[in-house]
Amino acid sequence: MDTILPILAGTIFATGIYLLLRRSLILTIIGIILISNSVNLALFSLGRLSTENPPLIKAGSLEPLAPFANPLPQALILTAIVIGFGLLAFALALAYRSYRELGTVDQDELLKDAEDTSAAIVPKNDFKDGGDV
């Protein structure tokens, strides 16, 4: 396992990079998902793999049964997965909004220069009545 996991992580990473470079936004997102998973896998295998007792403390005792597995990499991955989940949900929502607004998922089309950047600024009042701030 010590050799298989890093190779697997590397392969997934490379696949992710390939997808990242494609023009379709959807493929780009899938690429990011793959890279995210491969990094988690790398984190897991760098924490050293071992087949030992779960690091849980039984009722009545003060420490887990030795030898126990290192719980830290799993905690780190759990955190990374939850964070990654939130970010990817956002990326998907953003891609969906862009598709709705701009009508395409081709990045060349999507990222054509916008004309007027003032459009984002919505005036809260038109200065006539002294404002309602």
Binding site: I32, L94, L102, A114, T117, A120
Partner: peptide, 24 residues
């Protein structure tokens, strides 16, 4: 991305993907 105007979405797309990659 708050506001959803066209150029904001374009800006957000570039910003989001490059930053996601850098975090990874």
């Amino acid at each position: 991305a708050l506001g959803n105007s066209k150029n904001q979405l374009q800006g957000a797309l570039k910003y989001v993907f490059i930053n996601l990659f850098s975090s990874l």
